[in-house]
Nucleic acid binder design. Structure first.
Length: 807
DNA sequence: AACGGTCAGTAGTAT
DNA sequence: ACTACTGACCGTTAC
């Protein structure tokens, strides 16, 4: 049994799993925190803001601090809630390194899985979680790397063997298959080499987090596109379907580039309700639903002596006659009942998934539901939405169309979850005019300047709209830029074709088109060269993506605390073009200074430095290189892009695009899949060091990885202040007693988290990741022995290091 | 039409 | 008691 998704919801009896890998998170029984009042320091619970509580690094702990460790109770007594109360005897702090003491039952419980994983080449390295000696960090990483390579070779053999067995069953084209296999293998190896392989070790952990999920999905998308591109350029054999999605998925699976490998009941760390997916393999790789095809995923759970299957997740894809009339209720059909060979229907049996659902009905455990639906923008494709946790209410058998027995299950969505599937329905209704969007100020703020309307919406406050500006959809240069080179326009009258090496536009892009057939950017480039006005290809050419105007239904909306923002009604695929940055190009003066108006908050500045972006491999240098620096002001006029806010964990990035015989443009593309109604943000970057920052602004992105308010950054600040005994160290206001709602005891991390009302439980995994020992080791080059942190959250999280840094 | 992960069953191997 | 292997199962995806 893994960690429960819902905090403190001990709905399923604990089974057997390596407990050292499982976070132990549960709310304490006592909600009133006990704060120390060291002499000479104001009490934390006092109404006015208190200074940072400074504790000498020389241990053990100063008087008044020890009451902060009521949660450090021996593991055995954790099963007994009575023993773990606030008033129980205070133990001395346990160093962090000791929490991983292997337990025998943990090993025994995971034996079956463990062996399977070994077989699949997914090595659970003996030291991959032994954070122990940090001075060997480099060596550890090195050994991790070499082991990784070894495992890859292992699986390579397995793969070949498999290929042979397939050859037996299939006739013809086996040579073709193998050569292309090798091609793709080499391609994939090349591709993976460009990544930081040590990252994969972290990702492989059984408990994922937002960052790992993002990373895995990104690698999958890139690899799949690589495969697609490779197939694209080869002449296709008709009748032979290549499945780049499956190939990429299989490869990452075999290399262990995946998260949440152990199945679990309930929520999956790093995956939020409303997240969208475009391939079944993506759902597999992030551990949301492990079956690549089957609709029901289940695991066996120990009950006393025997085991029984329990459903963990289902995919409702509409191929069975599922009923989804009501957004919060789902009538789900059981699996099976079809003889694949001759497509004959027969009675479904109470086995496998059907049996698991039946058992889950009786156990009452949560089941994750993923809803699949047709993608309206892409007729062949499907989109999957994670719709959160459901509970099975009843089951029955009915006669299907063919007259055979079909199992039916009624699932009801758990309350208190953010909207997901119902939101899709609302959006569809808005689009079709069945219902109208609440709070619409203007149905189209572009006044028809774009191909699609952009609504202006405020359902938050009474603000009537943004300050006046002129809407225009493209970039305006002050004076014509003389083209430096003779134009090399292409002659592709029918549009540029991927394999056409005579096309000069393809040549300039390094021999391959930058976009896929669906208009998705293949990879980040320092410069994308599109066809321009002098090219002979039509406007719908695949190499003119950023010129075709809006393809996504956008709205400008009022945010709660960040002015106006931009979001989309449509789901957005990773790599999709969103819009360009329209505005007026500001000329640079001779000394390089740019006449930027300090009050102009609608500036795009290409010289700002972005954090190393992990958007694309091989280009982690941060900001893209431009032929010349570009500064755009959209204060007086521009397009939707001027409303896009900043985030330190953005979902959109910018890409310089030059159109043949024309000017440089800035185009925005989606970094990852973006669900409908999620705010679109990009990284504004930071001003180049050495230059005076016009006016430092507070970052409001609220991201856990915020550069400015980044909890890790915050933490390092605190640690630094602490180590240097900085008396001014002061980290925000102290929460008052009535502000505090919950205290989470995370004993496996030696961490106590004090949460304000606004703190959301789903942040916990991310917070914990931020404080994982790996993060510490990365930042400080060693493992802290005993760290104790109190965190509380308003919109952002602030952390206090209160005691126990015995370095 | 062809693809891949998971499960369950079975044959084989080690203790 | 554990491991390795195999085939059935289950729908998805692009053509």
């Amino acid at each position: 049994m893994e960690q429960q998704g819902g905090l403190g919801s001990e709905s399923v009896a604990s089974g057997s799993v390596d407990k050292s890998r499982v976070l132990n998170i549960r709310p304490l029984r006592c909600l009133v925190p006990i704060f120390p009042s060291p002499p000479g320091m104001s009490s934390i619970s006092s109404p006015q803001a208190s200074p940072f509580v400074c504790v000498p690094p020389t241990g053990p702990f100063p008087p008044g601090v020890s009451p902060f460790f009521p949660f450090l109770i021996p593991n055995e007594s954790q099963q007994n809630p009575q023993a773990g109360g606030f008033n129980s005897t205070i133990q001395s702090p346990v160093p962090i390194t000791s929490y991983r003491t292997p337990t025998s039952n943990g090993n025994a419980g995971s034996s079956r899985r463990g062996s399977k994983n070994r077989k699949a080449g997914i090595h659970s390295q003996p030291n991959d979680d032994g954070y122990g000696d940090s001075q060997n960090q480099g060596d550890q990483y090195l050994s991790g790397f070499s082991m990784h390579v070894a495992s890859a070779e292992d699986t390579g053999k397995v793969g070949r063997k498999r290929g042979n067995s397939q050859r037996k069953t299939r006739s013809g084209r086996e040579i073709n298959t193998t050569t292309s296999d090798i091609d793709l293998d080499a391609l994939a190896n090349d591709f993976l080499q460009s990544f930081d392989l040590t990252r994969f070790d972290t990702i492989r952990r059984s408990d994922g987090d937002r960052e790992s999920v993002r990373y895995v999905l990104m690698i999958y998308t890139l690899l799949r596109r690589r495969f697609t591109q490779a197939e694209d350029s080869k002449e296709s054999t008709p009748g032979v379907t290549r499945r780049p999605d499956l190939r990429a998925g299989a490869l990452l699976m075999s290399k262990g580039i995946r998260t949440n490998m152990t199945k679990r009941v309930g929520a999956v760390p790093g995956i939020e309700v409303g997240d969208i997916f475009f391939f079944r393999m993506e759902i597999c790789l992030v551990g949301l639903h492990a079956q690549s095809m089957a609709g029901i995923d289940y695991m066996s759970l120990k009950v006393g002596l025997d085991e029984e299957p329990v459903a963990v997740s289902i995919v409702s894809s509409g191929s069975y006659e599922d009923n989804d009339e009501d957004g919060d209720v789902l009538i789900y059909s059981g699996q099976g009942g079809v003889l694949r060979k001759d497509n004959v229907m027969m009675d479904q049996k109470l086995e496998r998934g059907n049996l698991a659902l039946e058992k889950s009905l009786h156990r009452g455990n949560d089941v994750r539901v993923i809803r699949g639906m047709r993608d309206e923008t892409n007729a062949t494709g499907k989109i999957y939405v994670y719709d959160g946790l459901y509970n099975i209410q009843e089951s029955w058998v009915e006669k299907g169309k063919s007259g055979c027995n079909v199992f039916k299950y009624k699932l009801v969505r758990a309350a208190g979850q953010p909207e997901a599937f119902t939101l899709w329905k609302s959006v569809r209704n808005w689009k079709e005019g069945i219902s109208s969007r609440v709070g619409v100020i203007l149905p189209d703020l572009t006044s028809g300047a774009e191909s699609l309307p952009v609504s202006l919406v405020n359902d938050v406050d009474h603000e009537k709209g943004p300050a006046y500006f002129t809407y225009f959809p493209t970039l305006k240069y002050p004076k014509p830029v003389s083209s430096q080179q003779p134009s090399l326009s292409c002659l592709c009258r029918g549009g540029c074709q991927p394999g056409d090496l005579n096309c000069s536009c393809i040549q300039k892009n390094g021999g391959a088109l930058a976009y896929t057939s669906l208009g998705v950017l293949l990879s980040f480039k320092s410069l994308v060269r599109e066809c321009g006005p002098s090219c002979l290809c039509p406007p719908n050419c695949r190499n003119r993506i950023s010129q075709a105007g809006l393809k996504i239904r956008l709205e400008v909306f009022r945010t709660k605390d960040r002015g106006w923002g931009l979001r989309s009604w449509d789901p957005i695929r990773a790599g999709c073009f969103i819009c360009e940055y329209a505005g007026e190009v500001i000329a640079k003066s001779m000394d390089g200074e740019i006449g930027i108006d300090n009050d102009d908050s609608y500036i795009f500045d290409s010289t700002r430095i972005c954090e190393p972006r992990e958007v694309m491999p091989g280009n982690s240098a941060g900001s893209p290189k431009l032929p010349f620096p570009l500064v755009i002001s959209a204060k007086n006029g521009g397009n939707v892009a001027r409303f896009m806010n900043h985030s330190c964990t953005p979902n959109v990035y910018w890409q310089p695009v030059v159109r043949e015989g024309s000017y440089l443009h800035i185009a925005f593309f989606a970094i990852n899949h973006i669900p409908p109604m999620k705010e679109l943000t990009y990284d504004y970057g930071t001003i180049h060091p050495g230059k005076a920052e016009p006016r430092r602004k507070k970052c409001l992105c609220g991201s856990l990885r915020c550069r400015v308010d980044f909890c890790g950054g915050m933490l390092s600040m605190i640690v630094d202040a602490y180590l240097f005994k900085c008396p001014e160290a002061r980290v925000g206001k102290v929460p008052s007693r009535e502000d505090i709602v919950k205290i989470y005891d995370i004993s496996s991390f030696d961490l106590l988290l004090v949460a304000r009302k606004s703190f959301r439980a789903e942040w916990l995994p991310s917070v914990l990741t931020a404080f994982s020992q790996a993060a510490w080791r990365y930042r400080y080059g060693r493992t802290p022995n005993s760290v104790f942190i109190v965190a509380y959250g308003l919109r952002k999280l602030m952390f206090w290091l209160l005691a126990g840094l015995s370095m």
